[in-house]
Design a binder for these strands. Structure first.
Lengths: 237, 237
DNA sequence: CGTCATTACGAACACTGTTCGATACGGAGC
DNA sequence: GCTCCGTATCGAACAGTGTTCGTAATGACG
């Protein structure tokens, strides 16, 4: 792994004023937070819990991190760094965009409910900036109007994060590891839909299967494909 | 300690003289929670706060509501009820869908950060069921494959909720009422983008305006239009 | 040596959601 | 009239939370 605190780039706005003090502090703390997120989820991250990993109290963290919110953002940035960079020489922007989206989605799923931190995150961190730059360039180069390209990137990020978060919430409702209970949960919803009066809700009752099937990766892929196709349709030639 | 009967302490604190006992019922509690959400946001809703509106303690609520989570869901369902029903006689499904989406979006924005409760909510409540039934019927009737229609409704709901939530978060970052601070916030991001090395990030630096402009209603409408057009393109004839 | 900013951290504050146990009350049965 | 019971009420407390304060230790610089 390269130097983790490479500093060619200006620091993101929320880090303005923080000192790049050399101490085993900030990065180690953020990494511990990410570890807890992976193992037990965001709600398990508390200042006391993180501090306990260093055999100290919560007050010790505030010398390195302004907030709990800042700590979580740091942990999120850490997770962002493990995204594969978008290949430089690629030219098929639709394939690149699809692949990049799936990569982000997978990364979010790898880190438990970290998708919750996705919202309202201005892209920051080198990896994210480079991906944005590359995909933006590919789209504009292919003839997508810049405004459309910019908005599309926003919406795409929103969609990826929201789907990953919803997916986690769904997996939370039943034990993901217990297929029996999972079936009971899904079966319950299914039965509820099916039990509706068919004269008032004919389409719901008649399409219970379609409403329930493929709620996971398949649906995500469908939305992705349709969205990318929509972007492509804005190219005027 | 048995000291409770040490002296003649006859006055029952709450029942003294008059009966301030409000009709503490489930609906009243949920309505108060929604009122607090509207006024100060979800994080301001605490059991003590809600209970205080009825001049009592938090324990009193648990006779009517299982959880704080259940309380919030009740409040959310209350907000859902104020959605206008989808007109029965409509036939242009794209117009209906657009109008319905905008209506939901507006409702979410009316209720502060209530969009946070959108995720992983299986459509429940009569209003939501009827909307689902109607829009589903319109799409399928127009030739949209049932699976596409079902997925589209899911994704559409996800998009509406996520955009509303992100919009609230953005409005939270700066005081919505203080345009000076707002400008400072946006200016900060803008400057950060603009300060990136132009040789490494030419497209970001060259499209700062497009990346920042119209982050609100305009972008939401754009995504909506594109998504609906995408659904329409799946109709085979 | 002293100076001084940075880091460490015990203690405390003001909260949070939730549970327990003891009350009070409205009706049903006698 | 009366007891009896299930429900409603709610003070008190528990185990947490994020954060601040004051103080002690640390280490670089002159």
């Amino acid at each position: 792994m390269t130097g983790s605190s490479a500093g060619d780039l200006p620091p993101p706005p929320y880090r303005a004023g923080e000192k790049p003090r050399r101490s085993l502090g900030r990065e180690a703390i953020a990494r511990e937070a990410l570890r807890i997120i992976d193992a037990e989820g965001i709600d398990a991250v508390s200042m006391r819990r993180v501090a306990a990993a260093f055999d100290t109290g919560p007050a010790s963290l505030y010398a390195h991190v302004k907030n709990k919110e800042a700590l979580l953002r740091l942990a999120f940035d850490l997770a962002l760094e493990e995204l594969e960079p978008v290949p430089v020489a690629a030219d098929d922007w639709q394939a690149v965009m699809l692949r990049w989206s799936l990569g982000v989605h997978e990364m979010l799923q790898r880190h438990n409910d970290i998708a919750k931190l996705t919202f309202a995150h201005i892209p920051s961190g080198e990896a994210m900036l480079e991906s944005t730059e590359r995909v933006l360039g590919l789209m504009i180069g292919a003839g997508v109007p810049p405004q459309v390209a910019a908005w599309s990137l926003d919406i795409l990020s929103l969609y990826i994060g929201a789907d990953a978060y919803e997916g986690w919430l769904f997996g939370q409702q039943f034990g993901t590891d217990d297929p029996v209970e999972a079936e009971a949960f899904f079966g319950g919803i299914k039965d509820y839909f099916a039990s509706l009066p068919a004269d008032r809700f004919p389409y719901i009752v008649g399409n219970v299967a379609a409403l329930m099937e493929g709620g996971g990766e398949e649906r995500f892929r469908f939305g992705l494909d349709m969205f990318i196709a929509g972007i492509a349709s804005t190219i005027t030639r």
